[in-house]
Lab assay of single mutants.
Amino acid sequence: MSIQHFRVALIPFFAAFCLPVFAHPETLVKVKDAEDQLGARVGYIELDLNSGKILESFRPEERFPMMSTFKVLLCGAVLSRVDAGQEQLGRRIHYSQNDLVEYSPVTEKHLTDGMTVRELCSAAITMSDNTAANLLLTTIGGPKELTAFLHNMGDHVTRLDRWEPELNEAIPNDERDTTMPAAMATTLRKLLTGELLTLASRQQLIDWMEADKVAGPLLRSALPAGWFIADKSGAGERGSRGIIAALGPDGKPSRIVVIYTTGSQATMDERNRQIAEIGASLIKHW
């Protein structure tokens, strides 16, 4: 067993022997301040990774656009098919120029040779490549099948209805392509620590998230040296922004954090800054 596999296998073990965790309302004060600064709703939840206990939450059962955070769930569904012998990570998928959609920095470079399922998941999570996500959605049967996968996990809230990039439209009061912070946090925890996926697939999923290259201005910008984070960000229309993450000190994750916002007129930089400040408060009061 590799060191990384050992780390993920012992996530519940280490967490069980940690000192009790206590909620700190100071972080919620910052979440509410972010709402004021952005002029928009902000949803927040913080779960203990081992027990699933909610440590703090704000608007945990209000719907927010998922945006690209759905790509972690998508690759979880792909990995479940791999575990069941219905898919192979090494299978190569070929596609054409007509398949390319807006923001496809990886797939646009491989029109000639195609990409493997493993490479597509890596591109979808680490670079948020939209064509990679659409190609992977095709392998599982489309958005409705991802929703069905989530329902089978016990998540009857999260739903995907459309493809990239239309799913980022974020129309107010439109339930399409949305989740709730509580539902997303619980589902992410199941994917990373539950028995739904094999140990190898859980490790692969967290490795992809740990290698995320496009979430630097968010929670990662607030992390002290030595902290662990595996995350996936999302951005959408109407001032929408979000991030889902597993993080913790001492090089291992111990909490799940989900943050979503929508309806702001603020710039992307300002949305990023507010999420980073929430992260800084979380870490300060850990």
Rank of each mutant, 00 (worst) to 15 (best):
I93L: 06
E237A: 12
E169V: 07
E35G: 05
G226D: 11
T179Q: 00
Q88P: 04
E61S: 10
T126W: 04
M153A: 07
D99C: 05
A246K: 04
D212Y: 03
D212Q: 15
T131L: 14
M268T: 10
A132E: 02
E166F: 11
I229G: 00
H24G: 08
Q204C: 15
A77R: 06
G226P: 09
L38I: 06
A182P: 08
P25C: 14
Q37L: 10
D174R: 02
A123S: 10
M127Q: 12
D155E: 04
G90N: 06
F149D: 14
I256W: 01
T198Q: 09
L146D: 00
I278Y: 01
L136H: 00
S96T: 09
T158I: 03
I275C: 05
N272D: 15
A132H: 01
T131F: 12
T139A: 14
G279T: 14
R159E: 13
P217E: 10
R91L: 05
G263S: 13
L167N: 07
K30I: 10
Y44H: 04
E108R: 15
E175N: 09
N168I: 05
A148C: 08
M66W: 00
P172K: 11
M153S: 08
L205N: 00
M127Y: 07
T179N: 01
M66V: 08
S201N: 10
M67R: 01
M127V: 11
A185L: 01
Q86T: 14
L160Q: 11
W208C: 03
A230N: 00
G239Y: 02
D155N: 15
T126P: 03
R271Q: 13
A185G: 07
W163C: 07
K213Q: 06
V214S: 09
A182C: 08
W208K: 02
I206N: 06
F149G: 05
I125M: 07
Y103N: 14
G39F: 15
V31P: 02
E166I: 10
W227I: 00
A123Y: 03
L28Y: 15
F58P: 01
W163E: 08
N272T: 14
D250S: 08
G76N: 02
E26Q: 15
I259W: 04
H156F: 11
I283P: 03
I256P: 00
K284D: 11
Y260L: 13
S57G: 07
G279D: 02
D83L: 03
W208M: 12
L38R: 05
P253T: 11
S201C: 09
T262H: 07
P25L: 14
T178P: 02
R81A: 08
G226S: 09
R189H: 10
Y95Q: 02
Q265H: 07
W286P: 03
C121D: 03
G279C: 15
Y95W: 13
A230P: 00
D155P: 01
G239R: 02
E270N: 14
I278N: 01
E102T: 07
L111Q: 09
A215T: 14
Q86I: 10
S281G: 10
A148T: 09
H151C: 07
S128I: 01
T27M: 05
A215L: 03
T69Q: 00
R92Q: 11
E169P: 06
P60M: 13
G142A: 05
V31Y: 00
S57R: 12
R159M: 12
I45R: 04
D207M: 09
E175H: 14
M67F: 04
K144C: 11
N168M: 04
E210Y: 10
R176M: 08
S201I: 02
D174W: 02
N272R: 04
T147A: 07
F64Y: 13
N152W: 12
V72F: 03
I283K: 14
F149N: 15
P143Q: 15
P25M: 15
C75H: 01
L150A: 14
D48H: 06
K213A: 05
Y44T: 01
T27K: 05
T107H: 02
S281C: 15
L199G: 09
L160Y: 01
Q274P: 05
Y95E: 02
L47D: 00
D99P: 05
A132W: 00
P249V: 11
Q204T: 08
P105T: 15
R41T: 09
R81I: 07
A40N: 06
L160S: 07
T112N: 14
A124K: 01
G239I: 00
L120C: 06
V31H: 01
Q274E: 14
A280D: 15
L191R: 01
I140D: 01
E164Y: 02
I171N: 15
A124Q: 03
H94V: 07
K252Y: 13
E102C: 05
T193R: 14
G248Y: 01
E195F: 04
W227H: 01
A185V: 08
H110G: 12
R162Y: 01
T158L: 01
G52E: 09
G242H: 02
E164K: 00
Y95N: 02
D231W: 03
P60E: 07
L79T: 03
V31L: 08
N152M: 13
P105V: 11
T107G: 05
R202V: 13
Y44S: 01
Q97I: 08
P143E: 05
I171R: 15
W208E: 03
E166Q: 11
A84D: 13
G39A: 09
G242Q: 00
I54K: 15
I275D: 02
A84N: 13
E35L: 01
A235L: 11
R273N: 11
G279V: 05
L191F: 09
P143R: 04
L74S: 03
R238C: 11
K190F: 15
Q88L: 14
H151E: 09
I171L: 15
P65N: 04
M180G: 11
E237H: 14
V78T: 12
H24C: 09
P65L: 03
I283T: 13
T69H: 15
D212G: 13
P65W: 00
S51F: 06
G239P: 00
F228H: 06
G263Q: 11
H94D: 06
L219K: 03
S96Q: 08
W286H: 05
E175C: 11
S122V: 09
S128F: 00
G154D: 09
L247K: 01
S104F: 03
W163T: 08
N130C: 11
D33L: 09
G142M: 03
V117R: 02
E61F: 14
D113T: 11
Y95I: 08
I259C: 10
K232W: 01
L199P: 10
C75V: 14
L74P: 01
E26Y: 13
L111I: 14
E102Y: 12
L188C: 07
E169S: 08
T262V: 09
A200M: 09
N98P: 07
G43H: 00
L218N: 02
F228V: 06
S51A: 09
L74R: 01
L137K: 02
S122L: 13
T267W: 12
E237M: 08
Q97T: 09
P224S: 12
I244W: 00
A183V: 12
A245H: 00
N134D: 08
H156P: 08
L192M: 12
R189S: 06
L205K: 00
K213I: 05
A200H: 09
H94G: 07
Q97D: 13
I243F: 10
A183C: 12
V101R: 07
E166P: 09
I278M: 11
K232I: 02
A215I: 01
G279P: 01
D113R: 09
L100W: 05
L223W: 03
T131R: 03
G114S: 07
A148S: 09
L196W: 11
N134I: 03
G114H: 11
R92Y: 12
T179L: 00
P60K: 09
L47K: 05
K232L: 00
K252T: 10
M268W: 12
A182D: 08
L79H: 02
D207I: 10
G226T: 09
K30E: 05
N130Q: 04
I54G: 04
F64D: 00
P224G: 12
G43A: 07
T116Y: 05
L146F: 06
P224F: 02
T69S: 11
T69F: 02
G242K: 02
H285R: 09
A276D: 07
E164F: 01
